[in-house]
Amino acid sequence: MRHVTSLRIGPMGFRIGSDWRAPIAALDDLYRDYPKPDGGIPDFNVHLFAARPWRRFIRPSVHIAGDFVIPDAAPLPLEMGLLAAEMGMNLQMALGQRRYLLLHASAVERDGKALLMTGISGAGKSTLAALLMARGWRLMGDEFALVDPATGLIHGFPRLISLKNEALPVVQAALPGARFGEIMEGTPKGTLRHLVPDARAIAAMAEPASPELILFPSFGFAAEEREVLPSEAFVRLTQASTNYMSLGERGFDALTGLVKAVPAHAIDYPDTDTAIAQVERLWGTR
């Protein structure tokens, strides 16, 4: 690979190689304060490559591969090279993670205790995590939360926060001093811009937290809250995990331990201000 960088996000190290300079330059810029993989040995490799040599120059399209691949990952145009790199890293986590139970969830921490938010795409877990970071919570991650089967603790994965469409102006207003990547229009997910987690999130990325509250947010409904029983939380979290089956009994122990010990609530919200108020209140009364 012509261009290479490596970085660590939470406990996981990555090496990213690319046929083009631009995606690597974007990663080096936005991830400049992140550490390198532990011991210089990455957990995962990502390749961004041209399917045919001339496609490096003519209508360059970025193919995504790595240690773990899906056969039909659609390529992206070169302007979205950073997105391709992020998707490549996410793909490695989703397909290859075997140390931690991986939950498709955002996580924030306060006083050493973690709040997990999970839901279907568009439920607003990235937006809520970014807004809670703006309010002084430590961001642990906007996409994946990692449960350590040995300890039950949550490890963060504070990659660049991926903000989409209507969420962009809301978060930009809440975090006027934050660092953002380039705006990418017309991605498979619409308009997209990456936000760099704040200095505290990066400095504390390796510190786990004990899970304290699980929320299942849904955006676009009148404000409502209801308690979620452990059995329902278990089913919903297995659906939010890409590696529950692969971990076998360790995954079973980690997840039954989590839902038995940690209260869970579903919250419906019409707007983000309402959601933040609901979250803070539930956190206070847990």
Binding site: P230, S231, F234, M245, G248, E249, T256, K260
Partner: peptide, 16 residues
């Protein structure tokens, strides 16, 4: 056993 339902992890198959 959890509230309304019971979870069974089957070691021979790895299936819950």
């Amino acid at each position: 056993p959890l509230d309304a339902l019971t979870l069974i992890y089957h070691r021979a198959s790895g299936i819950t």
